[in-house]
Design a binder for these strands. Structure first.
Length: 819
DNA sequence: TGATTGCCTG
DNA sequence: CAGGCAATCA
């Protein structure tokens, strides 16, 4: 007979043994299932957004998405004109990708057909700027002298980047001057106009922020890759974090195209393999010297993103044009900005895009600080300008160009259908842009308590953003800082964070964007769940509850143009790197009242754990098909999304007292219930915790509680059974469980610590039976069988008794304990 | 595949 | 108590 004393030994033996007693599984929760079903769409959208956001936060550059995201902020004013034909094509492809991605947000969306538009725009731009020195091939692209390019062209940046990288992998930052950094004097034409100090300052700030963001993971791209045509696609170059390899991954662009100049194929393979480890390596990387190279790469990526962003902007503007065509007559002062750009190229009639680039840049920067209205105004101005140009010049072939003709309403518009299509496309683009901006804003706005912290000089190569010096935020946030920011700001006080994030007083496009989707979803939920609509208001945590949030924010749903779901809300959860410091949970005062945070906390914990560190994958990209990291991330994201969704769900219980989480009182109640039932079904739990808004999270938490209760219970039983055997007890009959016995005291201490509840006699009986079962099993030597407890569990699970109705009352604790 | 359960670990 | 994991079942 095995030694009875060694509980642990036995436990070990059974370790990992499946001890599922096979208790009937109650299919549970209608509520949960319902939620799950509804979630899919949203979950998908969320996942997409998450990935997009992650791309910003994480350094991994996978898909073009990242590029675009970053670009939105960084983008200097680049005009597409700088781009070469090849570039334009690649960019159009990139845009396509982006659009597809955007489509993912809305299922209905079709793949963006408008590549032609983009390409045309690009061509136009090229035509305009064609004369510019910068124009040459990638290699040539060094914008030797295009004055305007310095400020306005994102594409121009890329060349610079390349040059820099080529010159020195060390990343001699200084060598590469960012467009902004260039001496104003160089830019003869545009710069003057563009030089609006205000704008510059803002831009610098944004750039700083971005730099800081990008910096943390420290990714540098070797210049070489830059030359590839694909640079657009490459955008994503992996962040190869590993320093060791001498090659340090030239970062051949991960893009499937493999346009890399260097022998890319082998590298790509390597990269793919490495991807999973990127996060971990990222830390190591900090130590590595290669970091610099990566930074460069990153910069390059940024440039690419910028280009794409510009294009998106252009499309957006087009949309505005169409949208506002009737109002074109009115000009805005903003016109000047556009005008600057426009002058660059004579032929740019429709190219407004070029200008756009500049505007866009500003808009990006401004968007962080300014209101959307400004953007619209500019768009209008641009339209006007274009109209003027159109008059002077012959109409453009470009489909887009026609649109601009809008000056006279309907003059250029050949087909309304076309317009509609265009509009839709642009809408899509704008939506994407908005999302990007929103994300950027989130990062950009330093809600963090310690804005002062500056990045280590090393981490921040000044090269690219010399202007940053002027920036408001010379300080960058480290990843951790960002996390803290989120934790502090967003979760605890979402409203505040939002407000802080958007410097925009009146119109908060960004914020609004996020909400609509959520809002949308809620209604559907409402349908499902009878009329709980009104209920949710009171108890929901502001952060998670879209409706309340929007209401508090003062947003009007109709105003939202973009259906995208709460990027902001999701954001904090997915902050990549850090742990989780994120959620200090500081503000939680009363557990009961603030239940939701509990969920949040748990979610955060999940996020923070292990694999998450990094970036999440982007579902779109085929480039990294099966990396483990991605898989993990995906599953995690998925699960997180589900959780978020669940949280967003409206409670089926219309009661005003419904809570979003489980409180200590609920735990106490559950413990008391354990005296009656050891194996409650999920449905039972729902009935007895009707004051809780059930979702998968809550359900599993409750189940887990009971699982833990059982665990403790059985451990005690086994322990005492073995003790009895050691004490010389020979027969189970000798064993009994009374209120005075040690076993009961132990159990009571655990489940009824305050001893303010009278344990039902039935529980004593069950405990006695259980003890005897253990005793007999051990005596019989059954405990050698790893699953020997299973039989006992089966017996015990049948001994559940009915839980008194009083436990169904939310106030049962008071009622029970006061008696 | 999702739900449930138990075991292990922190 | 919660998270992770594995086993099992429907």
């Amino acid at each position: 007979m095995p030694d009875h004393d060694s509980d642990s030994l036995l436990n070990r033996q059974t370790k990992r043994r499946r001890v599922d007693i096979g208790v009937k599984r109650t299919v549970g929760s209608t509520a949960s299932s319902a939620t799950a079903a509804t979630t899919d769409n949203i979950a998908r959208a969320k996942a997409a957004i998450f990935s997009a956001m992650n791309s910003l936060s994480s350094h991994s550059h996978h898909g073009s998405d990242n590029d675009s995201m970053e670009c939105s902020v960084v983008q200097p004013h680049g005009g597409p004109g700088v781009m070469s034909a090849n570039d334009s094509e690649s960019k159009s492809n990139v845009l396509r990708k982006l659009l597809k991605r955007a489509n993912s947000y809305e299922d209905a969306m079709m793949p963006f057909p408008g590549t032609t538009i983009i390409s045309q725009l690009l061509k136009n731009n090229i035509a305009k700027n064609g004369g510019g020195p910068e124009r040459g091939e990638r290699g040539d692209r060094v914008e030797t002298g295009f004055p305007g390019s310095g400020l306005s062209n994102a594409s121009s940046d890329a060349p610079q980047e390349d040059a820099c990288s080529n010159s020195s992998q060390d990343s001699t930052p200084q060598e590469c001057l960012s467009p902004f950094g260039r001496p104003p004097g160089l830019a003869t034409f545009d710069i003057e106009r563009l030089n609006d100090e205000h704008l510059r300052a803002k831009r610098a700030r944004v750039e700083n922020i971005i730099r800081g963001m990008s910096h943390s993971p420290s990714v540098v791209v070797p210049a070489a890759s830059r030359h590839e045509r694909d640079h657009d696609m490459d955008g994503e170059r992996d962040l190869e974090l590993d320093c060791p390899p001498p090659q340090s991954q030239q970062q051949a662009p991960s893009s499937p195209r493999g346009g890399e100049v260097c022998s890319s194929s082998s590298r790509e393979n390597k990269r793919k393999q490495r991807l999973p480890q990127q996060q971990q390596q990222s830390f190591t990387q900090l130590v590595c010297q290669r970091k610099e190279q990566k930074q460069e790469e990153r910069r390059q990526l940024k440039l690419q993103l910028e280009d794409m962003q510009k294009q998106l902007r252009q499309l957006q503007e087009k949309f505005f044009q169409i949208y506002d065509s009737t109002d074109d007559s009115e000009h805005t002062d903003l016109h000047n900005d556009i005008g600057n750009m426009s002058e660059d190229s004579p032929g740019r009639s429709d190219t407004g895009g070029d200008d756009r680039g500049g505007d866009d840049l500003r808009s990006d920067n401004e968007m962080a600080d300014l209101d959307p209205g400004h953007f619209l105004d500019r768009a209008r101005a641009l339209l006007q300008e274009q109209a003027l140009l159109a008059n002077s010049e012959k109409p453009r072939r470009d489909g887009l160009g026609r649109n601009k003709g809008q000056v006279g309403p309907g003059s250029s518009m050949h087909a309304e259908g076309k317009q509609l299509a265009e509009t839709l496309k642009q809408e899509l683009n704008s939506a994407m842009t908005q999302v990007v901006d929103t994300v950027v804003k989130v990062f950009a706005k330093p809600p963090c308590p310690t804005p002062q912290q500056a990045f280590p000089p090393l981490s921040i190569p000044p090269e690219r953003f010399p202007a940053a010096v002027n920036g408001d935020n010379p300080n960058f946030h480290t990843a951790n800082q960002r996390l803290q920011c989120f934790g502090d700001v967003i979760i605890p006080n979402p409203l505040d964070s939002f407000a802080s994030m958007s410097g925009i007083p009146g119109t908060t496009n960004d914020q609004t964007e996020a909400l609509p989707l959520v809002v949308r979803k809620t209604p559907s939920e409402h349908h499902h769940q009878s009329s709980a609509v009104g209920a949710h208001g009171g108890n929901h945590h502001p952060v998670l509850h879209p409706s309340s949030l929007s209401a508090s924010m003062g947003f009007s749903p109709p105003s939202f143009r973009h259906p995208f779901p709460l990027p902001l809300m999701g954001y904090p959860f997915q902050t990549p790197i850090g742990p989780p410091t994120a959620y200090p949970g500081k503000d939680r005062t009363s557990p009961d009242s603030m239940d939701l945070p509990r969920e949040t906390t748990s979610l955060r914990t999940k996020m923070s754990s292990g694999h998450h560190l990094g970036h999440h994958h982007r579902s779109c990209s085929p480039a990294h098909p099966g990396s483990t990291a991605e898989s993990l991330s995906l599953s995690l994201i998925k699960s997180e999304c589900s959780d978020l969704q669940d949280m967003a769900d409206i409670s089926p219980y219309s009661g005003s007292n419904i809570q979003e989480g489980l409180s200590p009182n609920h735990l106490k109640k559950a413990k008391l219930m354990f005296f009656y039932t050891r194996y409650p079904s999920s449905n039972m739990l729902k009935m007895f915790f009707s004051d809780v808004k059930f979702n998968r999270c809550i359900t599993s938490q409750l189940i887990k509680w009971f699982s833990n209760f059982r665990e403790f219970y059985y451990i005690q039983m086994e322990k005492f059974a073995r003790q009895a055997i050691n004490d010389g007890v020979t027969g189970a009959e000798e064993l009994s469980v009374s209120r005075d016995c040690e076993l009961f005291r132990a159990l009571n201490m655990h489940y009824n610590k305050a001893n303010d509840f009278e344990v039902p006699d039935r529980f004593l009986e069950v405990a006695e039976i259980t003890l005897r079962e253990f005793f007999n099993a051990i005596v019989a030597g059954k405990d050698v069988d790893p699953s020997w407890k299973k039989a006992i569990y089966k017996v015990i699970c049948k001994l559940d008794s009915e839980v008194p109705e009083i436990f169904k009352s939310p106030n049962c604790l008071q009622e029970l304990l006061h008696e």
